[in-house]
Design a protein around this nucleic acid. Structure first.
Length: 268
DNA sequence: AACCGCAACAACCGCACGCTG
DNA sequence: CCAGCGTGCGGTTGTTGCGGT
């Protein structure tokens, strides 16, 4: 309690004593696991909930397996790490009696150095393939959406073409060509991607397509290659460095675990 | 014996997620 | 819908023990 009368918790840190362990074990025996924040109050420990949980999970749990990691466990760790990466808790679930912390420490001391260079290359190659697949999937989806647009489109194709020509001739004065990309490709932040209430033909058209400037002397093939190259040069797929762009970009902005997990699955 | 480097392990920290009121 | 809380997870740091010089 501080001088102005407000409770001031001073949590103990550092190594656990035998007495603290005993109190924690007794608490779990009486109340079960969970509600870790009430441990301090109910068990008389000067430790915060997080610290208590960690101590229990990593050290005091009765079902923990003591002793060195066996060669068999080691091979499982290697296999699962290759499959899931640093998802230690997931790996730990496949090794009864071992904790994520234990596996994580084991990996760091035994494999990190050895595999650093190998892993870098392997990871880069894996990410390259991942991005390639993502890009292809996205292109495919866009093409499908585009095809659907045309299927439902009531517009006269000739009118569309004449409008396109009009637009391209007026916009290409800066030297670049203009073509119309599906609206979603250029307006990724909208949910529907369409002009909801188009009136004129032009409005309908502009609602669905947006002009994209293509630099002079750039063929479609070169443009595509450039995009690929930009993707391949990204190092990490973690939501900070990598971004799968286009209409799906918002999904990749927040690196949600489930999202990343789904990305990895096809490679398992 | 003293020092150093390294491995192994324990514990902390920050962040994200899910639940609940 | 939102804030608060509890919990889980992964990264990082601190501590200890041991072998080599």
């Amino acid at each position: 309690m501080s001088w102005w009368g407000i409770a001031e918790e001073v949590w103990r840190k550092g190594p656990w004593t035998g007495e603290e362990d005993r109190l924690l074990i007794e608490y779990v025996r009486l109340h079960g696991e969970g509600r870790w924040n009430s441990v301090a109050r109910l068990a008389g420990l000067k430790r915060n909930g997080k610290s208590c949980r960690l101590r229990w999970v990593n050290y005091l749990r009765p079902d923990l397996k003591r002793g060195q990691i066996t060669p068999h466990e080691e091979s499982i760790i290697l296999e699962l790490h290759a499959k899931w990466g640093n998802r230690w808790s997931t790996i730990a679930r496949s090794l009864p009696g071992r904790t994520d912390n234990e596996i994580k420490n084991y990996w760091r001391t035994h494999f990190k150095k050895k595999t650093k260079s190998v892993t870098n290359n392997a990871e880069k190659e894996k990410n390259r393939l991942l991005k390639k697949q993502q890009f292809k999937q996205q292109r495919q989806m866009e093409l499908q959406q585009e095809q659907q647009l045309f299927q439902f489109d009531q517009l006269d194709m000739k009118k569309i073409m004449s409008l396109l020509e009009e637009n391209s001739s007026s916009s290409s004065s800066d030297g670049g060509d203009v073509f119309y990309a599906p609206y979603q490709m250029t307006h990724s932040s909208t949910t529907s991607g369409y002009n909801n209430n188009p009136n004129s033909l032009e409005e309908q058209l502009q609602g669905r397509f947006a002009p994209v400037n293509i630099p002079e002397s750039t063929t479609m093939m070169n443009e595509e290659n450039a995009i690929w190259n930009r993707f391949w040069n990204l190092d990490v797929v973690d939501g900070h460095g990598g971004n799968f762009g286009g209409a799906g970009a918002t999904a990749a902005c927040g690196p949600r675990k489930t999202y990343l997990h789904n990305l990895v699955i096809p490679f398992c």
